[in-house]
Amino acid sequence: METDFKKNQCLISHEDLIVYQKAFESAMKIFELSKKFPMEERYSLTDQIRRSSRSVCANLAETWGKRRYKAAFIAKLSDSEGEAAETQVWLKFAVNCHYIDIEKARELYGIYNQILSGLVKMIHNPEQWLL
């Protein structure tokens, strides 16, 4: 994700951020995996893991729109960071409930660690992203 952290005039929208691309791809993988969760989880674990994984992306989109205001930019990045960490918790529940194969979950958990790392770098270096 190193290219996310260089001042780059080619970044036109939030969708150009590698951290966003990883989050979106991971949310789609979670969506596909969660289709196999039992029906009794529909309004609990299934809904929660889908919501938090999608919220990482949605908050990044909002973050991009708040680049004029440092405090708002950082606050939305923090929201995205929280949703990414929450998604990791739901992944652990899904593994412990035997809904997701441990290897698939490890892969996704690792990607969310990368996402979290990218978000933290943006939080600590907001100036290069601000308008």
Rank of each mutant, 00 (worst) to 15 (best):
L60H: 01
S80F: 06
F31W: 11
A27L: 01
V95E: 10
R51E: 03
V19P: 00
M122K: 06
K6N: 03
E32K: 11
E86T: 01
F37S: 12
D4H: 10
R51S: 07
I100A: 02
A71F: 05
P126E: 09
L131Y: 04
M1N: 09
R50Y: 06
R106M: 09
F5R: 06
E40G: 10
A72E: 10
S34R: 05
S13C: 12
G82D: 08
S78V: 11
V120S: 06
L108P: 01
N59T: 07
A85D: 14
V89E: 11
I30R: 09
L108T: 02
H124C: 08
W90I: 03
E41W: 02
K7V: 15
E40L: 12
T87C: 04
H124N: 13
S80T: 06
Q88R: 07
Y43W: 12
P38Y: 07
Y109C: 05
S13L: 11
A27N: 00
H98K: 10
D79V: 11
I100M: 08
L91T: 08
W90R: 01
S80A: 15
I123L: 05
G82Y: 11
G118K: 04
V89G: 13
V19T: 12
V95A: 09
F5M: 13
Y109S: 10
C57K: 03
C97K: 15
E32G: 00
E86A: 05
D79A: 06
A27K: 00
K35G: 05
A85S: 13
D101H: 08
E81Y: 15
K29A: 12
E40V: 13
T3H: 14
E86N: 06
L33F: 10
V89Y: 12
L17D: 01
F73K: 05
A84P: 00
A105N: 09
Y99H: 11
Q21S: 06
R42G: 15
S53V: 03
D47N: 12
Q114P: 01
E15C: 10
R42V: 15
K35T: 02
F73E: 02
E15V: 08
N96V: 01
L116D: 07
E62M: 12
E62G: 07
E86S: 06
H14R: 04
C57Y: 01
L119Q: 02
K22Y: 09
E86V: 06
D47M: 05
V95F: 11
I100L: 07
L130H: 09
N113F: 00
G118M: 05
Y20R: 03
I12F: 15
E32V: 07
Q21G: 04
Q128K: 14
L11W: 04
T3M: 14
E86G: 06
H98E: 13
I12Y: 15
K29P: 00
K104W: 01
L130R: 08
K7F: 15
E25N: 14
